[in-house]
Lab assay of single mutants.
Amino acid sequence: RTSMTEEYRVPDGMVGLIIGRGGEQINKIQQDSGCKVQISPDSGGLPERSVSLTGAPESVQKAKMMLDDIVSR
Rank of each mutant, 00 (worst) to 15 (best):
Q30F: 05
I26W: 06
K64R: 12
I39Q: 02
G55N: 00
I18Q: 04
I26G: 02
K28L: 05
Q38M: 13
L17N: 08
I70A: 05
M65P: 02
P41M: 10
G34S: 04
S40K: 13
R9W: 12
P57S: 05
V15A: 11
D68R: 08
P47M: 13
P57K: 06
S33Q: 00
C35H: 00
L53T: 02
I19S: 08
K62Q: 11
M66H: 03
E48Q: 11
S33D: 00
V10S: 02
K36W: 05
Q25R: 12
Q31V: 06
S52E: 13
D42F: 07
M4R: 10
V60Q: 02
V37H: 00
S50F: 06
S59Y: 01
E7C: 07
V15R: 04
A63R: 00
D69E: 13
G34D: 05
L46V: 09
L53V: 04
G34V: 00
A63Y: 01
E6A: 12
T5C: 08
R9D: 07
G20N: 04
D12A: 14
Q30W: 03
V71S: 05
V10I: 12
K64G: 01
T5Q: 08
K62F: 02
D42V: 08
I26L: 13
R21N: 15
Q38V: 13
K28I: 05
S40C: 11
D68N: 13
G55E: 00
G20K: 03
N27V: 08
G16I: 00
N27C: 07
I26P: 02
Q25K: 07
D42T: 13
Q38R: 12
Q25T: 14
D42A: 13
Q25S: 10
D32C: 08
I29W: 00
I70P: 02
S40L: 13
I70C: 08
G20V: 00
V15M: 14
M4T: 11
I19D: 07
R73A: 14
G44N: 15
T54F: 05
G20I: 00
R9E: 09
L53Q: 01
G55M: 00
T5H: 05
D68K: 09
G45M: 06
L46F: 09
P57H: 06
L46D: 11
G34K: 04
Y8T: 06
I19H: 07
I29Y: 00
L46R: 13
E58Y: 06
R9V: 11
G16S: 10
M66R: 03
K62H: 06
V71F: 07
L67K: 02
V10T: 03
D12F: 07
V37S: 01
T2D: 13
R73V: 10
I29F: 01
G23C: 06
G20S: 05
G16K: 10
Q31G: 05
E6L: 15
D42M: 07
K28M: 10
M66V: 03
G13S: 15
G44M: 13
I19C: 09
D69N: 09
R1E: 15
Y8P: 04
G55S: 00
D69K: 11
D32V: 11
I70H: 02
E6P: 02
G23T: 05
K28Y: 04
G45W: 04
V37R: 01
S33N: 00
Q25I: 12
G13K: 15
K28V: 03
T2F: 14
E48V: 09
E48K: 07
S43L: 08
K36A: 10
S33W: 00
D69W: 04
E7D: 12
R1S: 10
R9I: 15
V37T: 03
D32W: 05
P57Q: 08
V10G: 03
M66Q: 05
C35I: 01
M65C: 13
D68C: 04
Y8D: 03
L67H: 02
M14P: 00
R21K: 15
R73K: 14
L46W: 07
R21D: 15
Q25G: 13
R1T: 14
V60N: 02
I70F: 05
I26E: 01
S40G: 11
S72Q: 14
T5K: 08
S59K: 06
E24F: 12
S72M: 12
S52M: 14
K62Y: 05
V10A: 05
L67A: 03
S52I: 13
I29P: 01
D42G: 09
G45P: 10
Q61G: 11
Q61C: 07
S3R: 12
M14F: 04
D68I: 03
R73Q: 15
S3V: 15
K36Q: 12
V15K: 05
L67I: 14
R21I: 06
T54D: 03
S52R: 13
D68L: 02
M4F: 14
R73C: 15
P11H: 02
V10K: 02
S52Y: 15
G55F: 00
D12N: 08
E6D: 07
M65L: 14
I26M: 11
K64W: 01
G13L: 07
G16F: 03
T2C: 06
Q25W: 07
R49C: 06
V60I: 15
I39T: 02
K64H: 03
D32F: 04
D69G: 11
I70M: 09
D12K: 12
C35Q: 01
K62L: 07
P47S: 12
T5M: 10
S72W: 06
